[in-house]
Computed example of a mutant assay.
Amino acid sequence: MKYRRLLSAFFIFLAPVLSHAEYRVFVLKISKRASTGAAAADQGFRLVESTLDPVQYRYFYPVAADEEVTYIDTWRCYGRTGGMTPHCPNPKGQIPSSESPAP
């Protein structure tokens, strides 16, 4: 019985020390939907880093009805997201800027 309490106390106090927070960052492309008669090429778009996936992003931030939110890239970050800390950098390299999109 004594060992059981000792073991329980050990896990209760050790669990917070061993737990690690993590979150996922998504790169989302927000662009106008091409109409049926228009060319398939995107005229204008913006890239956004967010912790929300494409479906969640549409419900949380205002996106026009004629815009689509597309998933481009994702990676995992370790640590807390509190305090308005910036997202961790992409370990695969830099994301392409809006001015020079990747082919």
Rank of each mutant, 00 (worst) to 15 (best):
T36P: 05
T51L: 03
V69G: 11
Y59W: 08
P54V: 04
K32L: 10
P86N: 11
R33G: 00
L28S: 11
G37S: 03
Q43W: 03
A41Q: 14
Y61W: 09
F26I: 02
G79W: 02
P16W: 14
L52F: 12
G83A: 07
A21G: 11
R24M: 01
A9E: 02
F26N: 13
F13K: 00
G44W: 12
E49A: 09
R24S: 03
R24H: 00
Q43I: 07
T51E: 10
Y23A: 04
K32S: 05
M84C: 02
P16Y: 09
A34I: 00
D66N: 15
V55H: 12
S31G: 02
P16F: 05
A39N: 10
S31I: 03
R4M: 14
S19C: 12
V17S: 13
F13Q: 05
L52I: 02
G37W: 01
E68Q: 09
P54H: 10
Y3S: 14
R46A: 03
E22K: 05
T74H: 14
K29Q: 15
S50F: 11
V27E: 12
K29C: 00
R76Y: 00
A39G: 06
H20I: 10
R24K: 11
A21S: 14
Y61E: 13
R46G: 05
S8V: 12
V69S: 02
W75N: 07
R24P: 00
L28F: 11
Y3I: 07
A41Y: 02
H20A: 13
I12L: 15
I12A: 14
A64Q: 11
V25W: 06
I12S: 04
C77A: 00
P86L: 08
Y59I: 08
V27C: 05
T70E: 14
Q56P: 02
Y23G: 04
S19W: 04
I12G: 02
S31F: 04
K29N: 13
I30L: 13
I12Q: 01
P54G: 09
V69D: 05
R46I: 07
V63G: 09
T51N: 07
P54W: 09
V55D: 12
V17C: 13
V69T: 09
A65H: 09
G83F: 05
F60T: 15
V17G: 08
